[in-house]
Nucleic acid binder design. Structure first.
Lengths: 215, 215
DNA sequence: CAACACCAAACAATCGTTTGTTTCGATTTG
DNA sequence: CAAATCGAAACAAACGATTGTTTGGTGTTG
């Protein structure tokens, strides 16, 4: 209904905008969550990511999320002051996870095309993973006013691809910005047609890149 | 909230599922709407297309649409039995409009690449037009269960691109299905970053195709 | 007159959110 | 060591607003 950047319906004390202590940064995530993950807050983020990613922001209610975490709706507000704040936290988590995955994937490669391919595979695997944390990255096609924080997070993430593409030996006359946006678009769009059991995300990405790449 | 393919909240008489008499097919749309357009139904579709396209299905309420048409919410149900039916009508209209635009664009061209370029430009212009009827075509990233009719319409539209791509003289080893989905994805995604006043849709599309096309 | 297009008003359901209370483990204190 | 205290986390219940939709009446028009 209303754009995300707007004020909440019932007046909430704006002063209570507590700036979290930089988030309890857990060590770059060895696997998934081996540690007891007593952090219930993180459970909320995980479930919300799954729901936002599969049903969209407007299509996911706080009650849906609460039910998935098995707490009552009101209890969510112990962890997050509003639905929008929760979304921002989810988005930030998804960005950091994807960033970690992409960074790890390109770490030990030097060839520019190999680095781009590794990054794209990691990115797309995150998007298409059925227990996806990353689908939320593209869950807001139509939300016109999305929070500044989210835009900033997205830009910081996409800048990684900007740098990877800057290293490519492309023929002159190629617009690298359009190259980046086109590539990201074709990867994002896979979520609308990808079916598990068919081609793997890695195969899809390799085929996409083989179309773009010139010998 | 609930997937579009499901039953409505308050029990509606399912028998009244009136299959419209094939829709009052207006002559392939000379320009936009020069004729008096007494058809109020079409006004509803136009406004709904604009709103669905810019705010998404869940983000658009029947009251929003009614206000845009300047009638009361309940009056919408004189034209459409449900919100979902309205969406299907809007989607069908958008497909037919886009189909007309693409068909006209490729009519007098023979070179395969020129035909594809013309089609892509027409497609993307429809998507990015600020008074867009076509943005609704991609307004459902996350809706898991979308009506069968919509899927069928989308497939019929995309089959045009399938044929255009089949004609291309591509190097062997290129997966033309991935080619099509990647190209459609990169075009669809422009809606997330396109800004009026910057590069025109035509320029964007030409740059995209110049990346893909090999000399 | 009959069909159409609409208004006016309401319906139950669900929305995001608030409020007040309870539970319970850890910490502090007598 | 035991009792008192505390805060986090949850429950229980409700708030007003908004959702899609229904019903019944009204004016207009061919």
């Amino acid at each position: 209904m209303k754009p995300m950047g707007s004020k909440s319906r019932t007046a909430r004390p704006m002063a209570k905008r507590k700036t979290r202590p930089a988030k309890p940064v857990r060590p770059p995530a060895a696997k998934k969550q081996i540690e007891p993950l007593d952090d219930r807050r993180q459970v909320v983020i995980n479930e919300a990511a799954r729901l936002f990613g599969s049903k969209g922001y407007e299509g996911t209610s706080m009650r849906d999320i609460a039910a998935a975490v098995k707490i009552l709706p009101g209890s969510l507000y112990h962890h997050f002051p509003s639905k929008e704040d929760l979304f921002v936290a989810v988005y930030a988590f998804a960005v950091s996870q994807s960033l970690d995955a992409v960074t790890a994937a390109i770490a030990n490669r030097t060839d520019p095309w190999a680095r781009l391919e590794a990054a794209c595979i990691a990115h797309t695997q995150g998007l298409l993973d059925t227990n996806s944390y990353a689908a939320v990255l593209i869950s807001h096609l139509s939300v016109s006013n999305l929070p500044n924080q989210v835009v900033a997070l997205r830009d910081s993430y996409e800048s990684v691809f900007k740098e990877l593409i800057a290293e490519l030996p492309l023929p002159p006359g190629i617009d690298r910005r359009i190259f980046r946006l086109g590539l990201l678009g074709s990867m994002s769009w896979t979520i609308t047609w990808y079916r598990p059991g068919g081609e793997t995300p890695a195969t899809i990405v390799r085929k996409l890149l083989s179309i773009i790449r010139r010998e």
